[in-house]
């Protein structure tokens, strides 16, 4: 999941300066999970903006309807076309992915060009829970976990070293840049020791192939997991809501 937190209100209000009629749109994906784009968060944001004198219209996406998945979020955009056309800006309570997918869809498929403003800051691909999470994967395009006992040094080592640890490990195996964080390479060592693979630890790992992360990365899947595959209930819901989004196929 993509962890996220809401931006400071001061920054959000700065982007909305001079924009009176605002759509506040949530996200039923990660942003709902992190309470930065669920129904409650959208309601609270709408209230704050109303107190600032804004005229607010809310779009709440149900749980599992992500802003970044246009087949789903597009249903809500199409349903609220009139509001989108008549408003000065959209404040999107999702990660930057959702903001950009919605921007591209409204621009290119709905011919509605409005400022789509981010309400949140994305903090990385994290794992764990239920309360504590840790960034674990860079989505680098060339997974190194097979060489490092299942712990990613590019993400978990402060320096992203492929052959650590560095000389800065603290006495309690913490990282030199943050005493809260474990040294990834000490963890890798201990895990390899348990696995009986210390011979691999001593081997030099080649520099990471950053060419696999040539941005922006684009890809295609042959069989999209469409609305009909998600469940009859959701399918029915979108049927009742009205026009489906204009998709590629």
């Amino acid at each position: 999941m993509i962890a996220q937190e809401q931006k400071p209100m001061e920054e959000i209000l700065g982007y909305l300066e001079g924009k009176q009629k605002v759509v506040v749109m949530g996200c039923g994906g990660c942003a709902t999970f992190y309470h930065t784009g669920d129904k409650k968060a959208v309601g609270e944001m709408a209230e704050k903006l109303r107190k600032e004198g804004k005229d607010v219209f809310k779009i709440v996406l149900p749980f599992s309807f992500q802003a970044c998945d246009i087949e789903k979020s597009g249903v809500w955009l199409e349903k609220n076309r009139e509001e989108l056309e008549n408003r000065d800006a959209v404040l999107l309570m999702s990660c930057g992915d959702g903001v950009q997918v919605v921007t591209e869809y409204t621009d290119e498929k709905m011919s509605i060009t409005k400022p789509i403003i981010p309400a949140n800051d994305a903090l990385g691909l994290v794992g764990g829970g239920p309360k504590k999470f840790k960034e674990t994967c860079l989505s680098c395009g060339m997974c190194e976990l097979g060489k490092t006992a299942g712990i990613c040094p590019l993400t978990s080592c402060g320096k992203g070293l492929m052959n650590g640890p560095c000389g800065g490990v603290r006495v309690d195996d913490k990282c030199e840049i943050d005493e809260e964080k474990d040294c990834a390479w000490v963890k890798i060592y201990k895990r390899m020791e348990k696995l009986g693979e210390l011979d691999k630890f001593i081997e030099m790992r080649d520099p990471h192939e950053w060419s696999k992360a040539k941005r922006p990365r684009l890809f295609e899947i042959e069989e999209p997991v469409g609305m009909d595959m998600i469940g009859a209930g959701l399918g029915m819901l979108t049927y009742k809501l009205g026009p489906k989004p204009k998709l590629e196929e």
Partner: peptide, 13 residues
């Protein structure tokens, strides 16, 4: 130029 265009394309840009 982007490093991927040169002779060391795996380098981190």
């Amino acid at each position: 130029d982007h490093v991927s265009l040169g002779d060391t394309p795996d380098a981190k840009p």
